[in-house]
Nucleic acid binder design. Sequence first.
DNA 1: ACAAAAGTGTTATCAGTACACCCATGC
DNA 2: GCATGGGTGTACTGATAACACTTTTGT
Lengths: 243, 243
Amino acid sequence: MKPEKILNISVDCVVFGYDVNTKTLNILLIPRYLESKGKVLVDDFVLTGYHVYNHETLDDTATRVLKELTGLTNQYKKQFKAFGNPNRLTNEKDLIWIKNEEFNLRTITVAYYFLLNTEDVDLRHNKHKAQWFPVNDLPELGFDHKKIIKEAYEDLKIKCLSEPIIFKLLPDKFTINDVQDLYQSILGIQIDNRNFRRKLINKKYIIALDEKQVGVSKRPAQLYMFSKDIYDKMFQKNYLISI
Amino acid sequence: MKPEKILNISVDCVVFGYDVNTKTLNILLIPRYLESKGKVLVDDFVLTGYHVYNHETLDDTATRVLKELTGLTNQYKKQFKAFGNPNRLTNEKDLIWIKNEEFNLRTITVAYYFLLNTEDVDLRHNKHKAQWFPVNDLPELGFDHKKIIKEAYEDLKIKCLSEPIIFKLLPDKFTINDVQDLYQSILGIQIDNRNFRRKLINKKYIIALDEKQVGVSKRPAQLYMFSKDIYDKMFQKNYLISI
DNA sequence: ACAAAAGTGTTATCAGTACACCCATGC
DNA sequence: GCATGGGTGTACTGATAACACTTTTGT
């Protein structure tokens, strides 16, 4: 089976990146620009994505797309939904754009999201000219990518409440307040600092390091790490029914 | 756009049906049987599924497949995952079977699950010879359908803890003990009856009816209903972080 | 009257919430 | 020495968990 694109199946990737300094949750987008005879035909942004190859699993495709875009591998990824509306690529601009591409007009896309921290991506020489945009302040988006991002974000909001995926968005060493800021960014809520600290510090899988922040112009905070090992060992489903 | 099958994209449906009498959670399966020269080549079961048509959304396809199988419409459905492993249809038996079908060898399937109660389905003259099987005692399954069912069940287990989808598996009028039995079936746990009753009866959207069970050979129980209206009105995300 | 499942109350413990001030550090 | 964010304690409330017997009905 030689590598061959499947023309009606793609994978799209919503890359979430948290910027611990500006305390914003961002999404990585690629500009889409086309002009003809001095007239701008298409000027917006899209998610990164690509056809599935014949020999690949869907996960493989997502991994490949992320690597191609950011150089990163082994990041947290989650397949969250397939989008297959027959009209999902048939806006006027999308039709213009697709003329230059090999996409089948009736393509279904399997959407993934990735979680990482913006610091891990060097965009300076990015060949797709990828840029970060705050998730709450997105530019105009092509195809059905606005919808895809919205659903990815909804899924993330729900998942971060019950699984320790929040730490995938932070550096390995973080402060308690980093975690609080991140929850506040994602969920758009305010959290009481004292209660949050107590709760987090009491978790056995949140480990205080023998280190403090360096290079900050104020009292440096205690650094912590998340231990997946301990989390996995102590984890037991408690089946709390909360409907 | 005339109706035309997309040969490499299908939808598969995991139909969960709860039997309130036997207190079992079941899955609807279709036999797959093929013999040649007196030799049985294929004899197992599969989920119901079908190609996506060119003009359909994925949700449309799932709805159509369920209607074709059970006659039912407007049941709770959830798209939970796409399966696209290149080898997912290439077991020996699957290859034999597929010769008679129009399936592309590299087909990705978008999997849905449905929730309903077994009483609503009349299988006596079912043209696919569909049968119910307890989710914990499944027969041999073709393709990757064992995996698909497993993941559907995992998703259901998690979802029923935080959303009132449990009521989709019950008749409109049910007893508190029905709900408890169902949770116990799904999750495989024991629940304290007194605590569970109190918890459920205190919910404003669980409404006591002016009715009791009839035709039972013991003390008839109070019947209740679930009010989606009230649930939706009072629902507010409380963002409880429980990692 | 008996079998079978329906229904009922209390206490202890834990987790969540609300709330305001002092502390350590870099500059 | 001062500005800045880091860090701390207590009391209240509501939910969960453990636990065993009585009541109602059909037969």
